[in-house]
Write a protein that binds this DNA or RNA. Structure first.
Length: 847
RNA sequence: GGGCGAGUGGCGGAAUUGGUAGACGCGUUGGUCUUAGGAACCAAUAGUGCAAACUGUGAAGGUUCGAGUCCUUUCUCGCCUACCA
């Protein structure tokens, strides 16, 4: 029998799909639309298995929806700006543009070989002028709406490379490339006012019914809403400071007040800028802050000022004011009122500096003489030692009551605080979208007129210079507007900005006047299913949600606020790790299995240590190259395997054995197909078989449900079941009249998973018409005979095959005739009978 | 420290949502064919037991005629997050 030649057939069908423009999509108002989007890749060089998994999952869904009659939009593009291009270009002496475009070409071809149902006519690349031009327009729109502003902010500064570093480029306080100690440097930068939408972004989460709860929780925590109040403390001391504001969620514990703590960046610090001890303290704070361990251990240190704060509820009480390392400048007001009795951090601090620890809340099950010891008590209870607040229920009642009192006395007011900070979008980098802003000679900001857009990135840059290459582009930097000279902003936009609206661009990829056409997004948006890795749970998804709202803000033309109505986060692709005797990582290609040992290829004397399965990464060398796999086994086999072993939302373990078995399965399916085909084409019959009808109907039902629920691994099991069933079926049965019809339906069910294979099979059966997802006949699902479980005292004792819908009495009669049942019922009194129709009967006896 | 999630054969995982636990695949074992097989095909495969049967979904309890599934307690592992006042 001829083997299935995947190379020939996959190539053939990909060509046909492309030539016939099968996946190109147009607006069709007579059809329901379905917008399926997978997170677009960064063009790093080659696709990896994570991409294969992500895009296969999306492709299965897209193909299924298309067969179901939806007008499916399934586009692909490139998140093409970003640092790796600059680094790679520097290393290889290329331009970032050439490097990126070459990678895009490679990866596009690789993706095409997976047989994805993508509308490539909508391809976009964020590094193209016709993309980032619109982004610059959006920037200016947000600027006009007051949603973009400039402020000074700290960055990680590498003094050797003279460059700004991302947090992940700072390793143990040192620059990843230069090894120099990273400094904090204040730069004037651009910010998006995302915090303006904190509440809306939080509320919007409730509408996202089909988002994973995990992601919603992460966003909720990130936004970090907390209810409390601000308190304006009166200050006494030698400095010209009258008041310091604090935010607190527990104003009710004010009688436990024993110190006030400030961030080292608090404005009060300006009075200490010449104080050597303070500067030393400040430096120590910045050191402890960097390592994760330090935060976990969390040693509290402070610097005492000569200021004192008055307790607003008990004015006789004065407490010292400290600078403390655990107070963050960018949360609240950068100042904390310390209540050691009921906050663990405050407790640790008070212990260290011998400050008073007062107990003002007792747990419900303790008496009024309860005293905090060893650790703070942050839990609920009743207020004590708090004068007129005594007896209040904490925190529900007491917080609200205290705020009322503070408001009445004009000492404080209710306040809702959010952890979410504004989004700093400036990057001191070349390979990003230029910010369409210029400065006059006095440094005043001017938005570029829209007709001067796009601000194009200059091509002839010198990446060998230190710092941002755009800074040294004298010619490029200078602009003349109405005869006046201006200097360009040389920062570029964070690449997260590019990915915050690309889903809109896919709706109108060719529109030249604006980022999208209203008509297009009215039809296509929102994205019906978004698929990607959970690592983007917060930033990318939150930024995208913000961006839609920012465009909508003061814009009556635009109504959609949530970009992604459903979200699916797929798991990672993992692989075992290997190390040789010197603890060097080895790739799966360098090892071999001999018996139950793992040894080095070409040198079987070297035993390899097998480590746990971890997500594929170049550093651990546990990667498998998709291109190699596609070449060896074909796209359908890869698609089959990547879906087969685990549910899509969980991590999947890559295994060569599993891959081979998927490959073999396709070969077996092909052999089966050949047998069926021969039967259909060569044997004539007028006999009609009910059994295969029933089987097919059940299969369609199962696969449909499993597709809807993303149980793609179970679909593969359904495919194996089908194979086993049909193999046996055609062995014992001659051709029957309805075999072909059922077989065709089965092939359609397999199409989302192995599209090349089923296309070839159907073409062999001369299927010429457009295919549709088969309906299943509910009445055909019903079995006439079913198995009923007989339980005696709750234990399964027998299974009997009976007619469907059999009555309790009839089944009981049959059951009692059963030998085993009879044995267990012998001489016992039947106390009760539980009968569940078509499922089981449970006979309860007296012992 | 906080949050979320998960524990089912040798392994990956199924289980119609309270009703036959272990579908399907991998691996393993035995067999057939073969000069050979890392091919193909057939069969077996949760554990104990010759068997009847008993025990089994991390552990302990509970609800129920009936629990992998629901409730309480507890253990372990994974991921995320981090001094958020």
């Amino acid at each position: 029998m001829e083997r299935y030649n995947f190379k020939e057939f996959e190539h053939k069908w990909q060509k046909i799909w492309e030539e016939k423009k099968i996946f190109q999509t147009k607006i069709d108002k007579n059809k329901k639309k379905f917008y399926c989007l997978e997170m677009f890749p960064y063009p790093s060089g080659k696709i990896h298995m994570g991409h294969v998994r992500n895009y296969t999952i999306g492709d299965v869904l897209s193909r299924y929806k298309k067969l179901k009659g939806f007008n499916v939009l399934h586009p692909m593009g490139w998140d093409a700006f970003g640092m790796p291009a600059e680094n790679a270009a520097r290393e290889n002496n290329l331009s970032p543009k050439d490097w990126t475009n070459k990678n895009i070409e490679t990866m596009k071809n690789q993706l095409k070989r997976l047989g994805l149902s993508i509308d490539w006519s909508r391809e976009i690349s964020t590094c193209n002028e016709d993309y980032y031009k619109h982004q610059q327009i959006f920037f200016l729109e947000l600027f006009e709406k007051g949603l973009v502003y400039r402020k000074e902010n700290y960055v990680n500064w590498d003094p050797v490379d003279e460059t700004v570093l991302a947090n992940e480029q700072v390793i143990d306080g040192k620059g990843w490339r230069s090894g120099a100690t990273v400094e904090r440097k204040k730069l004037s930068q651009w910010f998006f006012n995302i915090s303006k939408f904190s509440q809306k972004l939080l509320d919007g989460l409730d509408d996202l019914k089909t988002w994973p709860n995990k992601v919603k929780t992460m966003q909720k925590n990130w936004i970090g809403k907390s209810f409390g109040c601000e308190i304006n403390f009166e200050i006494e001391g030698e400095l010209p400071i009258k008041n310091i504001k604090c935010f607190t969620t527990r104003p009710d514990t004010l009688f436990g007040f024993s110190f006030l703590a400030l961030s080292v960046d608090h404005e009060v610090s300006k009075f200490y800028k010449n104080n050597k001890d303070f500067l030393k303290f400040k430096e120590e704070c910045s050191k402890t802050g960097t390592t994760e361990e330090a935060i976990a251990v969390g040693e509290k240190i402070g610097f005492k000022t000569n200021l004192f704060a008055k307790n607003p509820l008990s004015p006789d009480q004065m407490v010292p004011v400290y600078f403390a390392n655990f107070v963050l400048m960018d949360y609240g007001f950068g100042a904390v009122f310390g209540c050691p009795g009921h906050d663990q951090r405050d407790y640790d601090f008070a212990k260290k500096y011998n400050l008073e620890i007062k107990t003002v809340v007792r747990p419900h099950d303790k008496k009024d003489d309860f005293k905090v010891s060893n650790e703070a008590y942050p839990g609920p209870g009743v207020l004590i030692n708090s004068d007129f607040l005594n007896g209040q229920k904490a925190p529900e009642q007491s917080v609200i009551e205290t705020i009322k009192i503070l408001e009445k006395r004009k000492i404080g007011k209710k306040r809702i605080n959010y952890r979410l900070k504004d989004w700093g979008v400036s990057r001191q980098r070349y390979w990003g979208c230029p910010i369409p802003i210029v400065y006059d000679k006095d440094g005043n900001v001017k938005a570029l007129p829209k007709e001067m857009l796009p601000v194009k990135l200059p091509d002839d840059i010198d990446l060998s210079v230190k710092g941002n290459p755009l800074d040294s582009q004298k010619k490029w930097k200078e602009v003349t507007i109405d005869g006046k000279t201006y200097t360009r902003e040389t920062d570029t936009l964070d690449t997260f900005v590019c990915s915050s609206w690309y889903y809109l661009r896919f709706c109108s990829p060719k529109e030249i006047n604006y980022g999208f056409k209203k008509n297009d997004i009215d039809y296509w948006m929102p994205v019906d299913q978004y698929i990607g890795g959970v690592e983007h749970a917060i930033l990318h998804l939150l930024y995208s949600r913000f961006f839609m709202r920012a465009i909508e803000h003061n814009n009556s033309n635009f109504q959609i606020t949530e970009p992604f109505s459903s979200l699916f986060t797929q798991g990672m692709v993992c692989h075992e790790t290997y190390k040789d005797e010197n603890n060097n990582w080895l790739s799966p290609q360098e090892i071999e299995r001999v018996g139950n040992k793992v040894v080095k290829k070409n040198d079987h004397s070297k035993i390899i240590k097998v480590g746990p399965s971890e997500s594929m990464s170049k550093s651990k060398k546990n990667v498998v190259d998709p291109e190699f796999i596609i070449n060896n086994y074909g796209a359908d086999a890869v698609r089959l395997f990547i879906l087969s072993d685990s549910p899509p939302e969980k991590d999947v373990q890559w295994s060569e054995q599993g891959m081979v078995s998927s490959y073999k399965f396709i070969q077996k399916l092909w052999a089966l197909h050949t047998n069926i085909k021969n039967k259909i084409l060569n044997e004539n019959s007028e006999d009609f078989d009910e059994e295969i009808e029933k089987f097919t109907n059940q299969l369609i039902e199962k696969i449909t449900n499993n597709l809807e629920k993303f149980n793609y691994n179970v679909i593969i099991a359904n495919m194996y079941e089908t194979f086993n069933y049909l193999s046996n079926y055609i062995k014992v049965n001659k051709n029957i009249k309805n075999l072909e019809m059922n077989y065709r339906k089965i092939l359609i069910c397999f199409t989302p998973i192995v599209p090349h294979f089923t296309s070839e099979c159907m073409s062999e059966l001369n299927v010429k018409n457009e295919i549709h997802w088969p309906d299943y006949d509910v009445s055909a699902l019903q079995e006439e005979e079913i198995n009923i479980v007989i339980q005696i005292n709750g234990k399964k004792r027998a299974i009997i095959n009976v007619k469907k819908d059999i009555s309790e009495n009839d089944i009981l009669k049959i059951a009692k005739e059963n030998k085993i049942v009879d044995k267990y019922l012998n001489n016992k009194l039947v106390k009760n009978i539980i009968f569940v129709q078509n499922r089981l009967i449970n006979i309860l006896t007296d012992e």
